[in-house]
Simulated scan of single mutants.
Amino acid sequence: MTIRRAGKPDFRNLCITAMRAFADDPVMRWLYPDNDDYFLPNGAVFANSMTNWLANQQPWCTDDAAALAIWFPPVEPGTPEQEWINTGPPPRQDQLARFALIGPVMAENKPTEPHWYLQLLATHPDWQRNGLGAQLMQVVLKQADEQGVPCYLETERPELVAYYRTFGFDVRSDWVIDPEATLGEVGPKMWGMYRPTP
């Protein structure tokens, strides 16, 4: 299986892969609890994010886009954020409220030093457990080791905490989204995982 940089022609397949891979993800389904919102045709729930990832991060993917990884390269503190390209309908108020809760707590838990950030690792369910995720991880982990730069990610599944430990990550912090249940119920738990330089 070839690992390569994704391009605009992969857009539809990348969105579908991400949507299918995260269909039962605790955080994604907390953000989009309504099936009608989440299961829009062609993985449209990821359309805005994928537009920006293709414009700025250039995702890594398999040759058929059945698996992908979104890695953000290291940036120095104070670097201006990249401009967000909005290509879809605006979120509803209830969705905006959830994003407003998750964003700050994730930012609080990120390392302050420059690091590679794995925002998303996704494999289409039909292709899972074939080592594709591991190949997508190693592409950047090797580069990070050569640069002497740490890596960081978040996960919301206990089984993935164990998975990422096999790549040298360990739990740095954990938190619960909206522990005061301001939106009616306590949100899902997340783990921040850090991989130091070798």
Rank of each mutant, 00 (worst) to 15 (best):
A107R: 14
P198C: 08
A107N: 09
V149R: 02
N109G: 06
P41L: 07
N35R: 14
N130P: 05
A162V: 13
K110W: 01
Y32P: 02
F39N: 11
A134M: 08
T182K: 10
T51I: 03
R98P: 06
G43R: 12
A107T: 07
A18H: 04
W30K: 07
R12E: 13
D25L: 13
K189T: 10
Q143L: 12
D170Q: 13
N48Y: 08
Y164C: 02
V75M: 07
N13E: 13
R195E: 07
K110P: 00
T155Y: 02
H115S: 04
P188H: 07
A97T: 06
N52S: 12
W60V: 04
P196W: 06
V171S: 05
T2W: 11
C61E: 02
A18E: 08
A122N: 01
P74D: 01
P33C: 08
P188V: 03
A67F: 04
W191V: 03
D145P: 09
E76F: 00
A69N: 08
T155R: 00
F46G: 02
A55G: 05
S49M: 15
G187T: 01
E159G: 03
L183F: 10
T182I: 11
M137A: 07
D63L: 14
D36S: 12
Y163Q: 06
A44T: 12
P26Y: 11
D170K: 09
P73E: 07
L141Q: 04
P104D: 13
P91D: 07
Y164G: 02
F169P: 01
A21S: 14
T155E: 04
M1A: 10
G131C: 03
V161Y: 00
E146M: 15
G184C: 08
P104S: 09
Y117S: 00
P77V: 04
K189E: 09
Y117L: 04
P73I: 04
Y194S: 00
A67H: 00
Q135T: 05
L121V: 09
M19D: 01
A100W: 06
E108H: 13
Y38R: 11
Q82I: 06
G148D: 06
N130M: 15
Y163D: 05
E76A: 11
N86E: 15
K189G: 04
N56P: 02
R172P: 00
P26I: 14
P91I: 03
E76K: 07
D10N: 09
